[in-house]
Design a protein around this nucleic acid. Structure first.
Lengths: 167, 167
DNA sequence: TTCGCTGCAAAGCTTTTGCAGTGGT
DNA sequence: ACCACTGCAAAAGCTTTGCAGCGAA
């Protein structure tokens, strides 16, 4: 699904919910759907870069709205602040992250889901949701020397994963 | 493993690392190993309850030390602040959490671990660690009425899971 | 016209840190 | 006697919120 189509569908979904589609929300949602994964502050920066009059609080409030509407999901990867992902229109998947370069890969493994069901049954639970995150080194980062890796791990957060920017 | 034994072993491990074993650290480690799962602020409160002269910063610094030494692990459950667990001397396990009462169950499922290995191989990754968290309702909370659940979910954090308090 | 939404700015919550002094080894 | 560690308190980082005014429907 492209960023443009996704925006249109999210807009429709929100309007159906009776949410007002303000100018600020147009900008915020458009920027959000352009990313695969982003943090709240990254979105704030990006949005304010597009329109500096939009307040930080508005971005956070819109993010909460999208979360509530099931358009985005919040992920706590082990490194750095929480990550958001536009999951609307995407099928379920879990994540594999390179702890060096920050690359995030989405994977599906139905056999794990089956085993989960078995586990919760074992304890009499009713399963509502789950997270399954694998951390490791991607092909490229495995080849880096330990020194280089130490230097890089001291550096700031991994790069973003942008699909396309549509504003 | 009892809290007492665990404390002794953690002390030995830290001394081997050349870390100074101050009076504050004795208190902090003893309180920490008495818990199954705890948040940083819960530990602060508990520690300062035992000795009100110990500063908040010292607790956080000791927690970082224990994390570094591999004595505790940090878990980001989806609800509330990060959770710490003393995993030293315990075999690997993942977690199942009741989102109503906060009960945390540790489970092991080797077949999932096997599938993980398969997944990372698929993408050419080297697996370093993982988290697998299941969220749902425990037997007790499944029986509660939706109204009751709504009321409870508005309330504060789940209760703690204390094994024993040894100070 | 209504009232949901926004900007602003302050506060809240958790965690980190600089510094001068203390205490383990 | 060293210097790692501590208390204190301020700051930092992220997120939320109260309020008065604005603007989408």
């Amino acid at each position: 699904m492209t960023g443009i189509n996704r925006f249109a569908e999210v807009e429709r979904l929100l309007r159906e919910k009776g949410v007002r589609f303000t100018g600020q929300r147009v900008v915020i949602v458009k920027r959000a759907v352009a990313y695969l994964h982003f943090t709240a502050e990254e979105l704030v920066k990006d949005v304010r870069n597009a329109d500096s009059t939009i307040a930080r609080g508005t971005v956070y409030r819109t993010l909460a709205l999208l979360l509530e509407a099931g358009v985005v999901e919040k992920h706590d990867f082990r490194y750095g602040p929480p990550n958001y992902e536009v999951t609307f229109g995407k099928s379920h998947h879990d994540h594999l992250m390179c702890i060096q370069c920050g690359e995030i890969i989405e994977f599906q493994e139905p056999r794990v889901e089956e085993l989960q069901d078995e586990v919760v049954k074992r304890f009499g639970y009713q399963l509502l949701s789950h997270t399954h995150k694998l951390y490791g080194l991607c092909r490229v980062c495995q080849k880096k020397s330990p020194q280089k890796m130490a230097a890089q791990s001291r550096a700031k957060r991994p790069h973003l994963h942008v699909e396309e920017i549509v504003v």
